[in-house]
Amino acid sequence: MSSRAAIRYAKAALEQANEANLGEVVFGDMKSVAATLENSKELRTVLSSPVIKGEDKKQALVKIFENNSDVTKGLIDILTTNKRIELLGGVANSYVDLYNQAKGVKVAEVTTAVPLSSELENKVLAKVKEMTGSDNVTLQNKLDESIIGGFILRVGDLQYNASIANQLDTIKREFTKSL
């Protein structure tokens, strides 16, 4: 969940990107920024560190994301100037959500213990399209070995939990109830 400040920055970035007809380009940038921050604990630590100067953080980010659009670089600059650079991950995620919302894209999150095969991914996409009534659906696969097997499907506020871990918990609750 992004903070209100991150959402405000994301809205401003989306508005600026749309005015420059770069909405889709910045969408790609923001997905890249979000993935980079999610996969790099070191970078997240640098951004949240009060010891490292804002200018140094900015230089590192500009170097890392040097191939990104001017809108993205401007966002990094404004976040640094306002001493809010630690919000970058939240802003990126919020931008992706706002962009998808504006384009009418439904995002389905599937949590599995192992990566989805393309065959299973197609089946899940078909089910999500049936559930939402939308042909414009993207699928995000998250891995979580703790669910043991099965899957958890989340589309907006709807969630369907068909994980083995959930079934075992249900059996455990029923068993302890009957004692």
Rank of each mutant, 00 (worst) to 15 (best):
N100A: 11
I78K: 00
V51R: 11
V46P: 04
K129M: 08
E145A: 13
V137Q: 10
I152A: 08
R154G: 01
K63I: 06
D97V: 11
V128A: 06
V51K: 09
G54Q: 05
F175E: 07
I164D: 03
N122W: 08
N18A: 13
T81H: 15
S69E: 09
I76Q: 03
A126C: 08
T81M: 13
S134Q: 11
R8L: 12
A5E: 13
N93C: 10
I164Q: 09
I78Y: 06
N18C: 11
Q101M: 12
P50D: 12
A10R: 00
A34F: 13
S69L: 10
A12F: 05
L75E: 03
L143T: 05
A12S: 04
D29R: 01
K31F: 06
S178D: 08
R173V: 09
L37Q: 04
K172R: 15
S134R: 06
V26H: 02
V71A: 08
T45M: 14
I152V: 15
L125Q: 11
M131Y: 12
L75A: 07
Y9K: 00
G156T: 01
I152W: 03
K58M: 09
I78V: 14
E15G: 13
V110Y: 07
G156M: 03
A17V: 05
I64P: 02
S3N: 09
G133H: 09
S118C: 11
L143I: 15
V137F: 11
I78T: 04
T112V: 12
L14I: 05
L116I: 06
L47Q: 02
T81C: 06
E42I: 09
G54H: 04
I147S: 03
V105N: 08
K73F: 04
M30N: 07
A20M: 10
